[in-house]
């Protein structure tokens, strides 16, 4: 791709994993907003930690990456948002996340 500079269409991009979903053009804005809202509804600390961990995975030896993942988990287990998620799940209601 880099060497030929050729065009690849939506179907090929999907097959290669460059994009993860393809929708009709008229639905694009709505679908993109829905995806953004889905992530925005997640606990912010966990989203931030996941992004940081993904960015580091390829720079670290697997054992180191796993150790870092466990470090994140230990911190997240103590977070208010995680506790709110557990309480909400036990009470079968929607959790409210504060980013703490």
């Amino acid at each position: 791709m880099l060497l030929t500079g050729r065009t690849f269409d939506a179907a090929e991009a999907l097959r290669l994993g460059v994009v993860t979903r393809v929708v009709p053009a008229a639905r694009l804005d709505d679908e993109a907003r829905a995806a953004a809202e889905l992530i925005a509804a997640r606990p912010p600390l966990a989203v931030r930690a996941a992004r940081r961990a993904i960015a580091r995975v390829r720079d670290l030896a697997p054992a180191e990456a796993l150790a870092e993942e466990h470090e994140h988990v230990r911190r997240l287990l103590r977070s208010r948002d995680h506790q709110a998620a557990v309480a909400a799940s036990v009470a079968r209601r929607a959790p409210v996340f504060t980013g703490e």
Binding site: P43, L45, A46, A50, D81
Partner: peptide, 14 residues
């Protein structure tokens, strides 16, 4: 994991 404020399978999946 992210839905309950945690993280799991990051390393393996990535």
């Amino acid at each position: 994991g992210v839905k309950v404020g945690l993280m799991a399978s990051n390393v393996q999946l990535a």
